[in-house]
């Protein structure tokens, strides 16, 4: 049996870390784009647009991410579509992220005073123009801290994809543990890597919140 040095473990984990980062980025960007669509549908004037968006959000917020992963991974298999683990992981995480971001952003849009809608409407702006020029620029400011904060959940959420066999950081940890029989060292390092990804994000979120709060006090 070969001996594993600490560097061997770190090296292999680092190799897998990039998949965690990539999956997080894809989920966050993809989830952001779809989340924006969900937001627009969620605050639409027409009921038939609002209702499906609401249902979508409730469904994804009301079920465990792991079940969503299983459903995408095994569910599509039922229709004869064989889904590679990376694709199932990406699709499920994008949809999951979109639901949460859509809801976070809805809260930010609704935090904008009603008078802003009325004033822009009274100037003849259409709903899209109101959103584009008046509401979103203001909502964006308050949306940044919770959005960055949520990205931490996305990063940690990617760990679940190890269960369907996607070899990211956690899965790599498991594989290495099976070879080295050093679970504490390996998983300790895995946790450290996650922390190294998430901590700067939390810190940024808090920093932005404080900065925003200060500029808000000038009102």
């Amino acid at each position: 049996m070969t001996d594993f040095t600490l560097w061997d473990i770190v090296r292999n984990l680092l190799f897998a870390l990039r998949w965690t980062v990539l999956l997080s980025l894809v989920s966050f960007v993809g989830g952001g784009v779809i989340g924006l669509l969900v937001l627009f549908a969620r605050i639409a004037k027409r009921r038939f647009a609002r209702l499906p968006a609401k249902l979508y959000i409730e469904l994804f917020q009301g079920t465990p991410l792991l079940m969503q992963l299983f459903l995408v991974f095994f569910g599509l298999g039922l229709f004869g579509i064989s889904v590679p683990a990376w694709l199932a992981a990406g699709v499920a995480l994008v949809l999951w992220t979109a639901a949460f971001l859509g809801e976070i952003w809805r809260g930010c849009v609704e935090a904008i005073a009603k008078g802003q809608w009325e004033a822009s409407a009274s100037l003849g702006m259409s709903r899209l123009e109101q959103m584009r020029h008046v509401i979103l620029p203001q909502a964006l400011r308050i949306a940044v801290p919770p959005t960055v904060g949520f990205s931490v959940q996305v990063v940690k959420g990617t760990a679940l994809t190890s269960i369907i066999g996607f070899i990211e950081l956690t899965k790599a940890g498991t594989i290495i543990t099976n070879a080295t029989f050093q679970p504490f060292t390996v998983y300790g390092l895995v946790a450290l890597f996650y922390f190294a990804l998430c901590w700067p994000l939390s810190l940024t979120s808090r920093l932005l919140e404080r900065k925003l709060h200060v500029s808000h006090r000038h009102h």
């Binding site: 005073a113 008078g115 004033a119 822009s120 702006m125 008046v134």
Partner: peptide, 23 residues
């Protein structure tokens, strides 16, 4: 309006310009 409802993210001048250019 009673509460002015200026767009807080835009300068006074931009407030007056916005609907002209957009609408």
């Amino acid at each position: 309006f009673q509460q002015f409802n200026l767009f807080p993210h835009l300068s006074a001048g931009r407030n007056v310009m916005l609907a002209q250019t957009v609408v």
